[in-house]
Computed example of a mutant assay.
Amino acid sequence: MLILLPPSEGKATGVDGPPLELGALSLPEVTSARQAVLDALDALCTGPDATAREVLGLPPGDRDALERDRALSDAPTLRAADLYTGVLYDHLKLPALLDGATAAAAASSVLIFSGLWGVVGPADRIPPYRLSMGVRLPPLGPLGAFWRGRLTDLLTKRADGELLVDCRSATYAAAFKPAHPVSERTVAVRVVRETADGTTVRRTVVSHMAKATRGAIAHSLLTAGASPTTPAELADALNDLGHRSELTPPAARNRPHTLTVVE
């Protein structure tokens, strides 16, 4: 089983680990691509502040993000498990998973997508940064397309025989879109809230709470040592773990199954 996650916009601070070592990150095959993104980001951030803010989508008062992005090559690092914060990661509790009996499963099962690094594992050491997959970074262009061209073959091989539990947002899903036959073993997680008014039951898609639920189901699967190999087994496992889940088959070829988790 592979759990595909987005990063978080929020990052930990107070970092004091060793400097970045690009070649030590997971998927060393894309080291040159990571260097290309680093170089492009450095060129952007050492240019006019106004241009960098516009490209990166930074608010006018956020000076820290630019300063961090200007010094990434020599910046101190920490594990990705400790770097990413926010609702999804609060519920995933990745540091505890990586430091306990579930360490091997967490290290081998979790892939975190990133506009800067492409994909990292939870134990990879990286510095705090600001670069969304949705950015059009000169001269590389849209980062989703840039990384899709470099990750698709690698991740298709990595996914051979594995069930993919896709907890990414649309922005990060752009970097890897599993095609047939991998798509037949891919499940996109959707979260809805169910409310009742008399005899009428309504379902609404939630956004902020969806992050919490995706983190919670990933935590449950890893803590329980679950190893589903098919979408149906995944739905059964989550229902057994207390997450009300409903599986819908793909609407077309090259599309994933949809797993609806009902809150």
Rank of each mutant, 00 (worst) to 15 (best):
M1G: 05
L2P: 00
I3V: 09
L4A: 01
P7T: 04
P7S: 05
P7V: 02
S32A: 15
A33H: 05
A33I: 02
A40V: 04
L41Q: 02
E54L: 13
P60E: 11
E67P: 00
R68I: 01
R70D: 01
P76R: 04
A81P: 05
Y89I: 00
L94V: 12
L97Y: 09
L98P: 01
A103H: 15
A104P: 06
V119I: 10
V120E: 01
A123E: 14
D124W: 03
G134T: 11
R136D: 15
L137H: 02
P138E: 10
G141M: 12
G144T: 09
F146N: 02
R148M: 08
G149W: 08
L154D: 03
L155T: 03
A159T: 10
D160G: 14
L163C: 10
D166Y: 02
S169K: 08
A175K: 00
P178D: 06
E184D: 15
R185M: 05
T186W: 01
V191S: 00
V192K: 08
A210H: 08
R214M: 13
H219K: 10
S220Q: 08
L222T: 06
P228Y: 07
T230G: 03
E233Y: 04
E233T: 08
L234F: 08
A235C: 13
H243I: 03
T248F: 14
R255Y: 12
L259M: 13
